[in-house]
């Protein structure tokens, strides 16, 4: 078992998310700033079940349980930095 980390990033591995750009998110670890790397765990998750909406939401991730639609590596990193900065205040 991995030690519990401060931020848990779950990447939706449902097929729609995966083909709509989710595949690239699995390389997230390479883009994390060094200061964050130890604090973040990255895992694949089964489909979040949001696929039936007509809006374009793919790919989806969850950061500590909060969903982030239309995710990109950049967006996830930004979100994590904001969370961490707020925490330091």
């Amino acid at each position: 078992m991995q030690a519990k980390t401060k931020y848990k990033v779950e990447i939706c591995c449902g097929t729609m998310c995966y083909i709509m750009g989710g595949a690239d998110l699995h390389l997230l670890n390479d883009y994390l700033p060094a200061a964050l790397r130890q604090l973040v765990s990255i895992e694949g998750a089964p489909c979040f079940g949001n696929c039936d909406t007509h809006e374009k939401i793919h790919p989806c991730v969850r950061i500590n349980g909060v969903e982030l639609p239309n995710a990109s590596t950049r967006k996830i990193v930004d979100k994590l930095i904001i969370l961490e900065n707020n925490d330091l205040l």
Partner: peptide
């Protein structure tokens, strides 16, 4: 590969 992925997506086939 893209077409295969699109078939999985459209038909809601979970690869996992």
């Amino acid at each position: 590969t893209e077409e295969l992925g699109a078939m999985f997506g459209a038909l809601k086939i979970d690869v996992n």
